[in-house]
């Protein structure tokens, strides 16, 4: 099955790239932007077919490598 992992900076952690994107959007005339936060999206193709086990595995991947939980949160979605 496929795992989709979204990694985002925790609230309060400075995101200068998000700020730069927001400023660029404003320059393009999108004047209703309150804020932008940039994150990462990672797709993982797993041999596992059991969703519970797959989630456990991806949780471990996030905790050990994919996210730095000092500064980042992660969210996992699973799909067939």
């Amino acid at each position: 099955m496929k795992a989709r992992v979204h990694i985002t900076l925790k609230p309060g952690v400075l995101d200068p790239q998000g700020k730069a994107i927001a400023q660029a959007l404003e320059r393009l005339g999108f004047d209703d932007v309150n804020g932008v936060r940039q994150g990462k999206y990672i797709e993982i193709d797993l041999a596992e077919t059991d969703a519970v086990k797959a989630r456990e595995t991806v949780e471990a991947m996030c905790g050990r490598l994919l996210a730095n939980t000092v500064i980042e949160n992660y969210a996992i979605e699973l799909a067939e």
Partner: peptide, 17 residues
Amino acid sequence: AAESGLLPGALLPNAGL
């Protein structure tokens, strides 16, 4: 070392990008 958990905290991209 920070990513290894040997030191506290984390290093983010520079504020000035």
